[in-house]
Amino acid sequence: MILYFTADLMSTSRVQGPANAQGIPLKVIGSQKGILETIDDETTALVVDLNPPARNAISTIEEAKKLRPELPVVVHGPHLQVDLLQQAKEAGADVLTNGQFHREVGSILQQLAAK
């Protein structure tokens, strides 16, 4: 199962639709606590939305990597938030701008589900 950390309803629908269409299990969670309590051996990847109102996004990535160092983490966020994107990369995530992520969301989910 792919976990999606977001509080943005628009992002949720833009990711949930392609996941459903491809039969990819996706669970949307809006809190750091919820993400960290849900990560288990069945979790194939974590996707993190850095868009406002993202809270604790970087620390969530860091904590998730402590729990499962091999867990693929993909983040997407505004291209103008260079510092935040860099922090996510330093925390161990693959970083995409919102445009890149949403253009390729179907193939990204397929790749993450296969891991």
Rank of each mutant, 00 (worst) to 15 (best):
T43I: 10
Q32W: 00
E37R: 13
L71Y: 10
E62N: 03
D40F: 07
R103N: 14
N20S: 14
D49N: 15
V15Y: 00
N20I: 12
P18S: 08
V82D: 09
L67K: 15
N98K: 11
Q16E: 14
D49R: 02
L109E: 05
S31N: 09
G30K: 07
V48P: 02
V47G: 08
D94C: 03
T12E: 15
G17T: 15
Q32D: 02
A91D: 01
A114C: 07
Q111Y: 09
I2Q: 04
G77N: 06
D41H: 12
G106P: 09
G92H: 03
D94F: 05
S107E: 15
E70I: 06
G30L: 01
G77V: 02
V95H: 08
Q22C: 07
P69A: 12
L46E: 01
F101N: 05
T60V: 00
A57F: 01
A93P: 07
I39A: 02
I35C: 02
L96H: 14
I2E: 08
G23D: 08
L84Q: 13
S59H: 05
L84T: 06
A19I: 07
L80V: 12
T60M: 01
G92I: 01
D41W: 06
G17Y: 13
F5V: 00
V75T: 15
Q110T: 15
V74H: 04
P52I: 09
L3W: 01
Q32P: 00
A21I: 12
P69T: 06
D83P: 04
T12F: 03
K33G: 05
E63W: 00
K65R: 14
G99R: 12
Q110G: 11
Q81P: 00
V95M: 06
E90I: 13
E63P: 02
L9H: 10
L46V: 01
G77C: 11
G34H: 12
Q22W: 07
V47R: 01
R55T: 13
I2C: 07
L71S: 07
V75M: 00
V74E: 02
L112Y: 06
S13F: 07
V82R: 13
E90Q: 14
Q111L: 13
A19R: 10
E90H: 07
V74C: 02
L26D: 04
E37I: 05
E70R: 12
I35M: 04
L67F: 07
K66V: 11
R55C: 05
T6R: 04
Q81L: 13
I29Y: 10
P52F: 08
A54K: 07
N20F: 12
L109N: 10
A19W: 09
V105I: 15
L109H: 11
S13D: 13
I61D: 00
D49W: 03
D94K: 14
Q111S: 14
L3Y: 05
